[in-house]
Amino acid sequence: MSAGDVQLLTETFSTSLRERLADSGAAPRHGEVVLYWLGQAGFVIESGGFRMLIDPYLSDSLAQKYKGTKFPHTRMMAAPVLPDELDRLDVVLCTHRHTDHMDPGTLQPLGRQFQNLRFVVPAAVVDEAIKRCGVDSERLVPVNAGERIEVLPGCFVSPIASAHESLDRDAEGRYPWLGYAIEASGLRMYHSGDCVPYAGLDEAVSAFEPHVALLPVNGRDAERSGNGVPGNFTLDEAVALAKNSGARALIAHHYGLFDFNTIPADVIDQRIELEASGRLTLLRAQTGLAWRLKRASQPGAIV
């Protein structure tokens, strides 16, 4: 199926995310994927009877850790759902070891609540993942770039190397920063994790032919990098990657949580207006919205 043969529908809901996720009427139908934003780089992905989380940060562990410092990590938005409010969960994907992507305050409660829950993590940081997830190694699925694994029946994950801000490898050649190309119900999504452009990234992503790209847009600068806060794509770079990879839609995220590491929402909205007549559908991640990805009634349509 080519990237033009899908629809992406935006749905607004007024209930809590907990109530929305428990509503069987809002669940994906056959051949659909439904996405929700959790803030920062976190998403819920539902399809074919399974529920997946990517990079959920649903606690205040960073605010507790950095209280009184130059970057106190005070939340600008509340977590839309708490770990104990989820009624079911099958797998969690963590792109790398940083706390806003691999959060002990989120992952350990989830691991205790759902005894069969598995965690997909970079093989390069598996020792750290055991500590942060609080589970035995048997519940981890260590992965590296270039692999393709079936994490759930009919759901495949293909890790792609990311550069945060450098393209690193460990002594065994494994990448500590990953993105995940996800295929479910014949629909394809790419979540880059934290990443900046590097030679070969466009080609690696375009080979997967994603329908939707989930990319950070908070950018980077010398002050943040010099204070241990490596950055991400700028908005321009994220748009360019989405276009170069052939994605039909981009959901821009990784903004609005910490005041020192964000981009104004209206800057994204202005770019959305500029892209409105183009081939790429640019969307801004927001709570209270769901995105339903499904096969289009007419080839080439995406709305």
Rank of each mutant, 00 (worst) to 15 (best):
A3S: 14
D5R: 02
V6W: 01
L8Q: 05
T12R: 15
F13V: 02
S16Q: 11
S16W: 15
E19N: 07
R20L: 03
R20C: 00
R20W: 09
V33I: 08
W37K: 04
L38S: 04
G49E: 08
F50M: 07
F50C: 05
I54C: 10
P56C: 02
P56S: 01
Y57R: 13
S61K: 00
A63S: 14
A63R: 12
Q64T: 10
T69W: 12
H73D: 12
M76K: 04
A78G: 07
L82Q: 13
L89Q: 06
D90R: 04
V92R: 11
C94H: 10
C94K: 11
H98V: 04
M102L: 13
M102K: 12
G105N: 11
T106E: 10
Q115K: 15
N116M: 03
L117R: 03
P122H: 08
A124S: 13
A124E: 05
A124H: 13
E128T: 14
I130H: 03
I130T: 08
G134P: 09
D136R: 12
V143G: 06
E147R: 12
I149F: 08
E150Y: 06
L152C: 01
S158P: 01
A161N: 01
A163C: 07
L167W: 04
L167P: 10
G173H: 10
Y175W: 12
P176L: 12
I182E: 10
C195N: 15
V196C: 12
P197W: 14
E203N: 01
E203Q: 15
A207T: 10
E209Y: 05
A213R: 00
L214P: 12
P216Q: 01
G219C: 02
R220C: 11
R220N: 10
N227R: 09
G231Y: 11
N232Q: 13
N232E: 15
V239P: 13
K243T: 15
R248I: 04
L250C: 12
L250P: 10
I251C: 04
Y255D: 00
N261M: 09
P264C: 04
A265C: 02
I268W: 03
D269H: 00
Q270A: 14
I272F: 06
I272E: 06
E273G: 03
E275D: 01
A285W: 07
A285C: 09
Q286G: 02
L289K: 14
L289W: 04
R292M: 00
L293K: 00
A296P: 01
S297A: 11
Q298G: 02
I302K: 06
